[in-house]
Structure formats: C-alpha cells, structure tokens
C-alpha cells in the first residue's frame, strides 16, 4: 500500500492516539500515516513525535474539513494516489484499511466509504436515524443509495483530493458526496464494523447534531442546485 496515505485528523486525542497508531502499525503492509493535529490543547503533537509518526500541526483549531484538506495537500505534494480518512478516537478498525484500499484500487473509483450499515442494520438511535435522513436526501437527489453517508472512514482518489484542496466548497461531508455522485464521480461502499470511541467525548451534542442535520439536508437538497 505504498500509494496510500492514512490521514488521521486529531483534536485533543493524546489518550487515544497511541492505540490507534499501534493498531495501524500492526498491519501486514503498513501504509504511511500522517496525523494532522488540529490545534490540540493537549500533547497530541508531542505524542506523535514520541511514537515516531509523521505529524503536522495547525497552530489553531480549524475543524475536520480543514484538517483533512491539510492532509490531502500533503498527500498530493508527496505523490500519493489515495488518501484515507481515519478517526483518531479509536472507532475505526485498522483491519478494514486494506479492504477499502483494495476496493478503490480495483474499481478505479473516486471514493470508497467504510459503511457500518451495509450488511447489518444499525440500532434505531438518533445517530442512525439522522444518517438515514441524509441517506434519503442523497438518494432523492442522485438516485444512488449510500447507506452510511456520515461514516468518517473513507478513501479518496487523487482526483477528488485535487478538488478538495482547490476549493473550500468541498468537505469530507455527506453533501460533498452527494454532489460528487451527481457530477459522475464513482462512490461506493464496503462493509465495516466500528467500535465505540475509546476515551473522551464526541464533539457533537444534541444542538450540534440538529444543526449538522439541517446544514446537510439544506446543502444536499438546495445548495447543490446552485453550486457549480
């Protein structure tokens, strides 16, 4: 997996990172890893140095999209053909990396999503239902069924990376997926299982989730019609 870069956006993940890195290094053919420290207040960056893993640091916190973009810029400069977004909180299982990589490589696709709901149905919790609503919006607009549009485990081709780095209209979010599908980019899913995050808490609370849902649905259903 020489042409794959694993991008780990990390904000205050000093506790979880060592295990995540260890799991990734335990793979047979370990790909290159890049941690993007998004202005963490804890010693995320120092831990990366200690572990000897490549890391870049935002001096202030900018958010996920920006962290991914930094990773993609790095990937393009270094000539990687694929980049995978991989969570720092321990939710993603390293054993699926190869499957996602193989899928994008064989299919010649643009984005492959590690989907939690491809084979099994999720619990009827708020997060799953939210995903279903977004999924419905994407299907309505593109005719394509994406079962897990909010999954944070995705591989991108260099074609997509170029778009992401050139314009801030693209973000690692479902609305961009929808837009790219509509534009004829090849997006597919492979089944993965995810764990609960190890330590710390997620950044989305109830208000945050509601705002996220509103943004995504509006963006997929309306804004996609006027952006070009």
């Amino acid at each position: 997996m020489k042409d794959l870069l694993i991008i780990i956006p990390a904000y205050n993940e000093a506790e979880n990172l060592p295990d995540v890195i260890k799991a990734l290094r335990g793979m047979v053919d370990t790909p290159q890893i890049l941690v993007v420290d998004d202005g963490s207040l804890d010693d995320t960056f120092d831990i990366c140095r200690k572990l000897g893993v490549k890391a870049v640091r935002h001096k202030v916190n900018l958010g996920l999209s920006s962290a991914i973009r930094t990773g993609m810029q790095y990937a393009l400069v270094k000539g990687y053909r694929y980049a995978m977004q991989f969570d720092a909180d321990g939710q993603h299982d390293a054993s699926y990396v190869k499957e996602l990589y193989d899928t994008i490589k064989k299919s010649g696709g643009d984005i492959v999503i590690g989907s939690r709901y491809l084979e099994s149905k999720g619990n009827a919790n708020a997060r799953y239902m939210g995903g279903r609503v977004i999924s419905g919006c994407i299907r309505f607009m593109t005719g394509k069924k994406i079962k897990d549009p909010t999954s944070g485990m995705r591989v991108y081709s260099d074609r997509v990376m170029k778009l992401f780095t050139e314009s801030s209209l693209y973000s690692p979010e479902p609305d961009t997926l929808s837009y790219l599908i509509k534009k004829g980019f090849k997006v597919s899913e492979t089944g993965v299982e995810m764990k609960e995050r190890m330590r710390g808490k997620s950044y989305l609370d109830i208000v945050g989730s509601a705002r996220y849902m509103f943004r995504m649905c509006t963006s997929i259903l309306f804004i996609s019609l006027i952006r070009s």
């Binding site: 935002h58 001096k59 900018l62 920006s66 801030s168």
Partner: peptide, 16 residues
Amino acid sequence: EDKFERFVEKDALRDE
C-alpha cells in the same frame, strides 16, 4: 475564514 484556514494549513505544511 477561507483565507485564514488556507494560511494555517500552509503554515502547518511549511513547518513540516
């Protein structure tokens, strides 16, 4: 905001 983000991103890569 866009300019600011670009700046911080570029800065991070330059440091690296």
